[in-house]
């Protein structure tokens, strides 16, 4: 009886472990768990082929089999593996419950997707941003998409911009752990990143003020940090803002003055909007090259005529409002009285 029990248990255990997943992982790991395993290219470059099992175990794909992604492999040992196509699972209506959405469509029309389609070998595909074996949930700190890691992930390719961004107000805030501060994707978008000269782009001259307004508008998060929230409204009121609304692409937008990656507070001497640097910023080629130093230094730029902070502008605006209302009341009263008198005269004549 005891022997029978052992036999049944053994069979059960064998059956359990003969589950194909584990079997496959085990089979692959025969070779890929060896740290020294590598592919030697003709150029002499060695490409390591070691796969750390623990990475896969922590990834979102920890329940997947190697061949679920590397579907072109059906024998061991195998030759060259093709690039994995994530779309095998991530399509809408897939039976395994893989997340899906607009991202493929968006990606194919994005600057990155278009470059890939055009045959640019350096342009990023899914894995370049999301990782290959190390696709972690964006909530885990080691994820390429953990919010604080996004700049670094993008910086893998856009290294110069990353270096500038890291020093900017936004970059430093992100490094300091302020979660409301924007990383690359907050401004540029994710799968739908477009070239900045494309009108659809979130950072195009046409749309950038809306993008900045998401945080710097009245509904924005910057209120928490004592940053003024009327910047968007005052921009729209300014001649630059009016020009933007009239479809002009040459008028200044947020980034024209505040810079884009190198955005800094006005007290930072390196800032493009630091009082010392404003003449240079306003006097840019194509903007106001003849600007005098007085034109641009030491004054309010974002003017809100409805706010008392604007000083004389506020009083002029108020004064004209009162004058206009009084004049209109007077004129209308006069016209109405005149018409009434005429009507009475006409009736009297009849």
């Amino acid at each position: 009886m005891r022997q029978l029990c052992i036999i049944i248990t053994s069979i059960f255990v064998i059956l359990l472990f003969s589950n194909s997943d584990i079997q496959a992982l085990e089979k692959c790991q025969i070779c890929h768990s060896k740290k020294e395993i590598h592919k030697a290219e003709e150029t002499g470059r060695k490409i390591p082929l070691f796969i750390d099992e623990s990475i896969i175990a922590r990834s979102v794909h920890n329940d997947k089999d190697c061949t679920d992604c590397h579907a072109d492999i059906n024998e061991i040992p195998h030759t060259i593996v093709k690039k994995v196509n994530c779309r095998r699972c991530h399509y809408s209506g897939n039976p395994v419950g893989a997340p899906d959405g607009q991202m493929y469509d968006q990606y194919e029309h994005s600057v990155h997707g278009l470059a890939v389609i055009a045959g640019n070998k350096d342009a990023p595909v899914c894995q370049d941003c999301h990782g290959d074996h190390d696709v972690y949930s964006h909530k885990t700190i080691e994820s390429k998409f953990y919010w604080q890691n996004i700049p670094k992930t993008c910086g893998t390719c856009h290294i110069e911009i990353y270096a500038i961004y890291r020093e900017s107000t936004h970059g430093r805030a992100v490094a300091d752990g302020i979660k409301d501060a924007p990383t690359c994707t907050d401004c540029h978008g994710e799968h739908n990143i477009k070239r900045h000269d494309n009108d659809e782009s979130r950072v195009s001259s046409f749309r950038i003020s809306e993008t900045c307004t998401e945080c710097h508008g009245t509904q924005g998060v910057v209120n928490k940090y004592n940053i003024k929230t009327d910047r968007a409204a005052t921009f729209e009121h300014s001649f630059h803002g009016v020009g933007k609304q009239m479809g002009s692409k040459t008028v200044a937008n947020c980034a024209s003055c505040h810079d884009y990656h190198d955005i800094r507070g006005e007290d930072d001497p390196k800032s493009s909007v630091h009082p010392d640097n404003i003449p240079k910023t306003c006097g840019k080629e194509g903007c106001h090259p003849g600007a005098s130093a007085e034109f641009s230094s030491g004054q309010q730029i974002h003017i809100n005529p409805k706010s008392e902070e604007s000083g004389i502008i506020y009083y002029i605006s108020k004064g004209f409002l009162v004058l206009t209302v009084l004049v209109l009341i007077g004129l209308f009263a006069f016209i109405i009285m005149d018409l009434v008198r005429r009507a009475k005269n006409a009736r009297a004549k009849r």
């Binding site: 007085e294 004389i312 002029i316 605006s317 004209f320 206009t324």
Partner: peptide, 24 residues
């Protein structure tokens, strides 16, 4: 460009307000 910016700001406010008043 020849004046301090607040000249422009004052000018713009007056131009805008008086423009409306005159039109009306």
């Amino acid at each position: 460009e020849l004046f301090p910016k607040y000249f422009y700001d004052i000018g713009r406010e007056m131009h805008s307000d008086e423009g409306l008043l005159a039109t009306l």
